[in-house]
C-alpha cells in the first residue's frame, strides 16, 4: 500500500498510542518517523516489532537523564527506545553529550536513532542507512543490548540523497499497525451513532 506521509503519521500516532504510549509521546514519535521511514524502511519494521513487543515485555523510559549510562526504571526489563529517545531529545543533549553515551538493555536502537537524527543534524553517513550521522556498536533488537552511540566523523558524511515522499507498506505491516490503531477507536454503538456525532441522520432536504 502506497501511503502519503500524512497517512503514515496518522497511522503511526494511533498505533503507538494503541501500544500504550501517552498521546503526547505518540504524536512526537509519529511526526519524527515521517522522514525516518523514507530514509530507512527498517524503521517501519522495527516499529512494527516494537508495538508487538509492548504487549508481552516490560519496557520503560529511562530512570534518569543527564547520566553517562541511561538505564531503564527498576520495574522494567528493557529500555524503551521511544520513551528514551523523547527523554534525551527533551533533555536538549548536544552532539558532544551524545557521543559515547551508553544505553543499558535497549531494544530496537534504530528507533532511538530517529530522535538522535533530530539532535545531530549531520548528513547521511555513507553506507550507513540506519541513522543520519550516528551508529551504534550493537544492533540490539527485541532481546535488548547495551549499546553506545558513536557519531560519524564529518569527513565520512556526504550530502543527503533525495528522499522519497511516499511510503510503501506491505499489507501485513499495514494490518499490524491498523490493529493497534483500532485500540484507540470506540466500538460503534447505535447510541453513539445517534448522540455523539456531528450531523443529522437524514439530510434529504
Amino acid at each position: 500500500m502506497n501511503l502519503s506521509l500524512n497517512e503514515w503519521e496518522a497511522l503511526a500516532k494511533k498505533a503507538l498510542r494503541g501500544a500504550g504510549l501517552p498521546w503526547g509521546i505518540a504524536e512526537v514519535a509519529a511526526k519524527l518517523s515521517r522522514t525516518a521511514v523514507v530514509k530507512d524502511h527498517k524503521i517501519v519494521e522495527d516499529l512494527a516489532d516494537w508495538v508487538a513487543l509492548c504487549d508481552i515485555q516490560s519496557m520503560s523510559g529511562p530512570k534518569a537523564v543527564f547520566q553517562d549510562t541511561i538505564r531503564p526504571a527498576k520495574t522494567a526489563k528493557f529500555l524503551c527506545p521511544i520513551l528514551t529517545g523523547i527523554a534525551i531529545w527533551d533533555a536538549e543533549y548536544s552532539s558532544s553529550d551524545l557521543h559515547g553515551l551508553n544505553f543499558e538493555n535497549l531494544v530496537f536502537p534504530r528507533l532511538l536513532g530517529m530522535f538522535i537524527d533530530n539532535i545531530v543534524s549531520q548528513p547521511l553517513a555513507q553506507n550507513r542507512s540506519e541513522f543520519v550521522g550516528c551508529t551504534f556498536d550493537q544492533d540490539a533488537h527485541a532481546q535488548g543490548n547495551n549499546v553506545t552511540v558513536y557519531l560519524m566523523p564529518e569527513k565520512t558524511c556526504h550530502a543527503p540523497r533525495d528522499l522519497a515522499s511516499r511510503l510503501d507498506l506491505t499489507p501485513d505491516l499495514h494490518q499490524l499497525f491498523a490493529s493497534y490503531a483500532l485500540r484507540t477507536y470506540a466500538p460503534a454503538t447505535e447510541a453513539s451513532r445517534l448522540l455523539g456525532a456531528g450531523a443529522g441522520l437524514t439530510d434529504n432536504e
Binding site: P22, W23, G24, I25, E27, V28, G61, P62, K63, A64, V65, L83, I86, A87, D90
Partner: peptide, 9 residues
C-alpha cells in the same frame, strides 16, 4: 517528564 511522560503534551 522522565517521571511523568503522560504530561509531555
Amino acid at each position: 517528564l522522565v517521571k511523568y511522560p503522560e504530561h509531555r503534551l
